[in-house]
Design a protein around this nucleic acid. Structure first.
Lengths: 350, 350
DNA sequence: TTAATATACTGAAACGTTACAGCTTGTCAC
DNA sequence: GTGACAAGCTGTAACGTTTCAGTATATTAA
């Protein structure tokens, strides 16, 4: 009832969204000319070009995404592939915000592609590639030998990984230097006189697990401190598990006098465990933790923190993917973010 | 170079992604028939239908989104509109996960549409509607008189709001019962003998600000406690501001002996402020706080918490939008989540 | 037998875009 | 004055889908 008008008068009064046809009618040109004029093709007269672009701006023409996508295969979509299981914590939103910041003034949309419980991480990536649902993909929880990266490299679809791989293949990535984080943390603790250090690692199997562990080990021997093995948990474990295991650890004879934690949420649990064991943070043991929001110092003044900026990670990852799509060499789209050092709490007066 | 083949042999060996044409060729039917057979149209013979669907499954046919979208206007996209400024905290990822859980086994994709610093919140919604970029929209930071909801209602695009409106217009929503939260919090504090209560409110102007304030006020008069005004901050303020203002408040002569906080991050700052003033949580003042992840008890045992489940909110919102798209009456797609009560810390042994 | 009708299927057109292969017109060299 | 060529523009087809208006065959009613 609302749509009484025939095909013919489409050209006359276009109340619907303007298309190339509308513009062609208004300017008296052909749709081909209009299309080319809008993308600054060389064989269009300078005046015509300006005229078309003016009219387009005036009536608020926006290319129909489905039309473009059908014709060219270009989706103007970046997909962020997320594990809904483990990435429980806040930093996911930071990454998302970082990505959206970068693509805000591009024609790109961000779609979130989840994969859940016990699903093959390759599944969502395969889906994206097979259905051609995105021009570029961002993945996280990167592994040294990552089948997803290998797959996308084979298929030639631009992507960026949060975290490096170690397959001898070159692709864009952004990573936080967790080796540096671990070494700085160890040195800092050693500087405070701590000698028996424990590490709460990233999830075993992920790339930054190795980086962290290596940095920890190297720095330990550098400063001549010793490791108190604490392999029963990683930051992927539940708060309760970490807390319990930490308490157990701290009740043992040879307990650490310094702990390094790879994630803020885990740190809350670690501190709880320490206190469960009747020990006091800052006196019996010091803890250095990574964090992504500035909250740990509110939690316990005694905590030592290293900040990791996930919003930056999101931005860098988006920039990388867009760069690759735009033709930049993948090898030049890699970035590593250096920790700014271990920071202790400052009282207001300091 | 990879694409040497002519249009003709397209029909023969389809190495590319299968389309209706591929299926038509394989089954010896017309594309129309295939299209209808796949959607169980009645005028297709039962055997033909089965045959087509079998072949489709075998070769992994998936309808081309761009084709469908161009022809029908259906995008199979749900958009989640987010404020990149204020929604700093973790619960955004919970909402996203909740949404993805629901749309996982539908053809829908989730796109995240951000709006940032000082931008009109109506902008992204207008964009989505004008460009027809989504079949349904989810918005948050809902206001009693929300221009976005009004706009989408006018335009007839299905949406759901996180939080209720108060415009006499009916639309799907999911909301946490913040009135109940506030009343339960007040009653709990009153039950502990607290008489002078302060409230750290949600952002002024949002719907749940009113609900919270109303619940607070009503319960105050019910239990005969008094309010210590604390209108200088809301949970949208920075950690530092909240902390400072709380410290100021707690140093005054008439200071509250109970505080109710609408968000976990604010609570960290509040507690810091309390301690800055030299007071002790649980002795000089009790704090009831909402939280979305179970972390506050690790922060301070003395905290009293009420849990709000944002993953549930995401799921409910997605269900609502899909329901509306599917033709369900908007009025029947409203849900209110009740707080499960104020919970205090339980030591392991309890 | 014929006509009406139901069943099962099909071709053409359209959604909005871009690529390809033209088509005019004007200018210039000769 | 003719041919060549460039500049500037245009029509058609195609991407994959669904809808519309059929067509062919079989079945039933008279």
């Amino acid at each position: 009832m609302d749509r009484q008008r025939t095909d013919k008068d489409d050209e006359a009064t276009a109340q619907e969204r303007p298309t190339l046809k509308t513009l062609a009618f208004m300017t008296g040109l052909g749709v081909t000319t209009v299309s080319r004029a809008l993308k600054d093709a060389p064989e269009i007269g300078a005046e015509t070009r300006r005229r078309v672009q003016l009219v387009a701006k005036q009536i608020g023409y926006r290319p129909n995404r489905a039309g473009v996508r059908l014709r060219t295969g270009k989706t103007n979509v970046i997909s962020l592939v997320l594990n809904t299981e483990h990435e429980l914590m806040s930093f996911v939103s930071d990454i998302i915000y970082g990505v959206t910041e970068v693509i805000a003034d591009t024609p790109y949309h961000l779609i979130v592609t989840p994969y859940s419980r016990s699903q093959d991480p390759l599944d969502p990536v395969r889906y994206l590639v097979e259905t051609g649902s995105a021009d570029g993909v961002i993945i996280s929880r990167t592994q040294p030998n990552d089948p997803r990266a290998r797959y996308m490299l084979e298929r030639g679809i631009p992507f960026a990984t949060h975290g490096r791989t170690d397959m001898g293949l070159v692709h864009p990535y952004h990573d936080f230097d967790n080796y540096a984080f671990a070494t700085e943390a160890v040195r800092h603790l050693a500087g405070m006189g701590r000698r028996r250090l424990a590490l709460v690692t990233p999830p075993v199997g992920l790339s930054y697990y190795r980086h962290t562990v290596d940095g920890f080990a190297d720095a330990l021997s550098e400063v001549g401190a010793s490791e108190v093995p604490f392999n029963t948990v990683s930051i992927d474990h539940s708060i309760e598990q970490i807390r319990m295991r930490t308490a157990q650890l701290m009740r043992r004879d040879v307990r650490p006098d310094g702990i390094i934690s790879s994630a803020a949420a885990a740190t809350l649990a670690i501190v709880a465990g320490i206190e469960d064991a009747g020990l006091k943070l800052g006196r019996d043991v010091d803890v250095v933790s990574k964090q992504s929001s500035e909250l740990l110092h509110l939690f316990r003044h005694e905590l030592l923190v290293v900040n990791e900026d996930f919003r930056l990670a999101g931005s860098e990852l988006a920039r990388s993917v867009l760069g690759w799509i735009g033709g930049t060499a993948p090898g030049s789209l890699q970035s590593l973010s250096e920790p700014k050092g271990v920071v202790a709490y400052r009282r207001s007066g300091d």
